[in-house]
Amino acid sequence: MPRLLRRLLDRFSPAPGAPLAGAAERRSATAGAFVAWSTPGRPVWSARDCGAFAKEGFQANAIAHRCVRLVSEAAASTPLLLYDGRRELTSHPLLDLLARPNPHEGGGVLMEAIYGHLLVAGNAYVEAVQLDDVPRELYVLRPDRMRVVPGADGWPEAWEYTVGGRSVRFRRAAGRLSPILHLKQFHPADDHYGFSAMEAAATALDLHNAASAWNKALLDNAARPSGALVYSGAQGAGLSDAQFTRLRAEMEAQFQGAANAGRPLLLDGGLDWKPLSLTPKDMDFIEARAAAAREIALALGVPPLLLGLPGDSTYSNYAEASRAFWRQTVLPLARRTGASLAHWLAPAWGGDLRLEPDLDAIEALSTEREALWRRVNAASFLSDGEKREAVGYGSDRS
């Protein structure tokens, strides 16, 4: 192949010592015979950081945006039950704090922000404002502004939050409640930061966004692929500079853009139109875009059937896909977040406090819960207390 390329280049290169052609002659040469040599370029991927995931994923991609909204809103709508040991508590300062974490937002908004940051950035940070060593308010901080400061032993000793050119350092004090709760997704190659589900879908995101941009550009150009105007006039004749400039200006003004869609192109004087680009059918455009959308949904834990994506038959019906979504994605996230919040805040009040999602409040799991109640109620060898524990309640309430 290199020998063939060299022979072609030598054929169209001037002989050694030959004078170079003038400007007009060079213009004529461009209308003569030529060889176009092209190879596929290297792919250009978006940056792999929190800001890029927020911009290229959540803000610019409809599939990723909907997946994050589905998971975060579903998890935030799941009530958390508070237990002290095996006893359920219906009234407690921790429940009041989670219901009204600060004067500006309710508990649902706070939890939705936590889950959203975990999905997009892989990390979520919650600040506790304390009074007399008791947390009074909770705030979610942006992960892209937070930096973990490791200590001599490798564990975080502080967190530095930077905004507007100013930095605030939150230090961990021995024997006191940590001012920051750092929630993170599992990352096998990082000691201090979590791995974003959006990063696992980054390649599919780039493909899906590029396909959308390509489709938009195609529509802006009257849904026609690009091409070339070939001049086939008399031998040795070519377009002058003035003719070339005028033709290009007319093409840009009268035939480019969505406003000129469908306008006929009138050619004369030996001009002919030759399309160069591949058609969407040749590129398998639609199928590639659908495959990228399914990969994005898979990485974020949402069954494609819930998004109305074509070509997915993993689940037989919508209800089955919805139950899988709750069981495999939402509930594990809610349980882990509730356990982290309880482990962080419980020492302020003492006791063996833990937070668990209320499965009875999830409509998608109502058929499963009904079947469980029926089986437990039919078990005559169980006492009332044992039946309560079997369905997820403690043996006593207070």
Rank of each mutant, 00 (worst) to 15 (best):
A99G: 14
G394F: 13
M198Y: 09
L119T: 04
L300R: 03
W159H: 13
W373F: 11
S196K: 09
E386Y: 07
A213L: 15
A253L: 13
A292D: 12
E389D: 12
H208Y: 12
I63W: 01
G311E: 08
A324N: 07
E356R: 15
L309T: 04
A54G: 10
P16T: 02
R335E: 12
A234P: 00
S91Q: 14
P19N: 02
P143L: 01
D272L: 11
F34R: 13
L207P: 00
A152C: 02
R294V: 12
H92M: 09
E56Q: 14
A31V: 00
G311M: 10
A217K: 06
V168W: 12
P280H: 05
G308M: 07
R142C: 03
A29K: 09
D84P: 01
L8G: 08
R246V: 12
D268W: 09
D190P: 13
D241N: 12
N61Y: 06
E73L: 01
R375L: 11
P179H: 00
T314V: 08
E160Y: 01
L306E: 01
P225V: 15
A62T: 09
E25I: 10
L306S: 02
D96P: 03
R397I: 15
V120F: 00
A213N: 09
L300W: 06
E160N: 06
F195G: 06
A292L: 12
A319N: 11
V148I: 14
A52M: 06
E137S: 05
H92F: 07
P225Q: 09
R7F: 06
T329G: 03
T90V: 15
S313M: 08
V109Q: 10
A31W: 03
F12M: 10
A242I: 04
D268G: 14
E252D: 13
G194H: 08
D96T: 00
D190G: 11
S316W: 03
G236H: 09
K216V: 09
A378Y: 03
L183S: 08
G165H: 10
A189I: 00
S72H: 01
A291D: 07
H187Q: 05
